[in-house]
Design a protein around this nucleic acid. Structure first.
Lengths: 251, 251
DNA sequence: GTCCCGGTTCAGAAGGTGCTCAGAGGTTCG
DNA sequence: CGAACCTCTGAGCACCTTCTGAACCGGGAC
């Protein structure tokens, strides 16, 4: 396949691109190199062009060069305050989207006003699915991402998920999900017909600092089955020794 | 979809535009950079073209370049007095609308003179919903904004809100709301079928200097439910771990 | 058949989230 | 100056969510 002819994710899914078809450009700013690495990897996996910076100064320099569509920005930086960085970033590129990373207890004091401009934030520890989903939402709403087939709605067989309204239906029937169930199903629905290992699921759906065992995944799959497959023809299948697959019923 | 062919807000809603379809142009003048940043972000989110200035001189320079349809103008500026700026602005663009930002205990008679000219003001600390709503009202009344579909009336299901008259009805029945309740409902009604987080609500509906916790949002949602959903089929729904949605009853 | 292993499910503990009530303080208006 | 109203805080409570541990189940190997 020609690189550049069509932009695809490493997972084979069509990537969310800029309106002109080139990859979306994202800047990751975090002073924890491990975390920056994980984030960078996850975003590259989405087929996006990613650069990383460790502090406010580096962020600005990188932004001037990359002119990113979005920035993932840790609020706590060694040299600057997140709000100041936001201001400078907007001077470099007024329409840039920003996703803030913040500690759960460092609380909302510094978050005040941030979501007002359409920007968003997630609290540490977060899951990669969460970060990617928020970023996709931001970029789509800002019109920086080419509208993909179905807009903000995911569909697999007769199963649909509206990410904005957080609504899931199967055969038209509404299904109520807890936050974790929702995120697990979102991950499955974004990778239909593909076997996902428990480790993969754990890495994407659970927060990066989760110490627990893969047993939780089995548990939540069983929860999902009760709600999604309840009585109906099953869509969630176990592949012994490998993981789980979500497939439309009529194969 | 062609970018530029239709002007939309970053939230996906159709934007209020100039009569020729181009984005409305707004100039923000405030010497507090954080506040200016938040205001700028919120107005851009509405799909408008925004520039910011920190003092009277900068404001004039920016106005000459931008020729704004409206100006959000802090009365207290480091170099000049807001009213002097107003006079100069009117020389640059005689039909410009002005929304004054003023301290709560500011002199009333001077403000009274302003509003006689069709301009408006809000007192600090204000909420972003308030500022945006006032600005929309000003621009609409001045005929600088293309009349959108429904004029100043919002409708979701059998729930209607007349922003000008501050009247809310459900199934034809009049509902009395306190100022905060009204603004919260307005925000919900401007974003129907979209889950809004408590942080988002706090950032938009409460004043920017509000230090309180998200608990207030829950409280006011409960007030609103008592009045809007009272006995009827509920329209305000809780999405655990995510926020709240307003939806018409017949899905 | 029996054992082992991966997977499923149940039950319950621990903590978290959201709802409501009661009341204090502030503001507005008569 | 007093009454009415509005806004916000704190506390209590009910329910939900998440995760642990343990029992259970079924397929495949031997």
């Amino acid at each position: 396949m020609l690189v550049g002819a069509m932009n695809t994710t490493r997972s084979g899914r069509p990537a969310l691109t800029r309106p002109d078809g080139t990859p979306l450009r994202v800047l990751v700013v975090d002073d924890d190199p491990d975390l920056a690495e994980v984030l960078t990897g996850a975003l590259r996996y989405e087929g996006w062009e990613v650069r990383a910076a460790g502090d406010g100064a580096g962020a600005l320099a990188a932004a001037r060069e990359l002119l990113p569509d979005a920035v993932v920005l840790d609020v706590m930086l060694p040299d600057t305050d997140g709000f100041a960085v936001l201001r400078s970033l907007h001077q470099v590129k007024p329409d840039v989207c920003v996703l803030f990373l913040t500690a759960r207890d460092a609380v909302e004091d510094r978050i005040a006003g941030i979501t007002a401009g359409g920007d968003d934030y997630v609290t540490k520890p977060f899951s990669l699915e969460e970060v990617v989903a928020r970023l996709r939402g931001l970029l789509r709403r800002a019109g920086m991402a080419r509208q993909q087939e179905d807009g903000p709605r995911l569909t697999v067989g007769d199963l649909t998920m509206d990410e904005e309204a957080r609504e899931v239906t199967r055969a038209g029937e509404l299904i109520e999900l807890s936050p974790t169930e929702f995120e697990l199903l979102r991950f499955l629905m974004r990778n239909p017909r593909r076997v996902l290992s428990k480790a993969q699921i754990l890495d994407r759906v659970w927060s990066y600092d989760f110490g627990g065992r893969a047993h939780v995944v089995e548990l939540y799959i069983s929860y999902l089955r009760k709600k999604v497959d309840a009585g109906r023809e099953p869509m969630i299948h176990t592949v012994r020794g490998a993981g789980y697959v979500l497939k439309p019923v009529t194969k």
